[in-house]
Simulated scan of single mutants.
Amino acid sequence: MTKLLLTPTEAAELLGVSRSTVYELMNSGDIESVRIGRARRIPSAALHAFVTRLRGEGHAA
């Protein structure tokens, strides 16, 4: 079964960036996140949308 929500650490591993970078992206609104209690989680679809936006920006340049 595929996870619907990822921890920032899991998202960082998938993106190949640091956990700090993922938190910066969440704080800036570049990557959508949700709160469950005190924990922040990232919908897997939000990661796909983020990468798709980055790819689109690369083609425009």
Rank of each mutant, 00 (worst) to 15 (best):
A60T: 13
G16Q: 07
G58V: 12
V22S: 02
I42K: 00
S28V: 03
A45H: 07
S18F: 02
E32G: 01
G56F: 01
L5H: 09
A45C: 04
I31H: 04
A49N: 08
G16N: 01
T52I: 09
T9L: 12
A12R: 03
V22K: 03
S44Y: 07
S44V: 11
T9F: 07
K3L: 12
N27Y: 02
S28W: 05
T7Q: 10
S20R: 15
F50H: 12
R41T: 01
K3S: 14
A39N: 11
H48T: 13
A45T: 14
R38F: 04
E32Y: 04
L4H: 11
S28I: 00
A45V: 12
D30F: 06
V34P: 04
R35K: 15
L4S: 13
E13I: 03
T9M: 09
S20T: 11
G16M: 05
P8N: 15
I36H: 08
S20H: 13
V34R: 15
N27A: 13
L6I: 07
S20Y: 10
T7H: 09
L14C: 05
V17C: 14
A12Q: 07
P8Y: 04
T21E: 10
I36L: 14
H48Y: 10
I36W: 00
T7R: 15
G58T: 12
K3I: 02
E24N: 14
V34E: 11
T9H: 13
A46D: 00
S44F: 07
H48W: 06
R40Q: 12
V51W: 03
I31P: 01
P8F: 02
V17F: 05
T21L: 13
A61I: 09
T7S: 15
L4I: 10
I31Q: 01
E24M: 08
E24T: 10
E10P: 05
L14G: 03
A39Y: 09
A61W: 06
L15R: 08
T9I: 08
E13A: 13
E24I: 02
V17Y: 01
V22W: 00
S20K: 12
G16W: 02
E13R: 15
A11T: 11
S20C: 08
L6F: 12
M1D: 08
H59A: 14
P43F: 01
R40G: 04
R40F: 01
L4V: 11
V34C: 03
H59W: 10
A46V: 05
L25K: 11
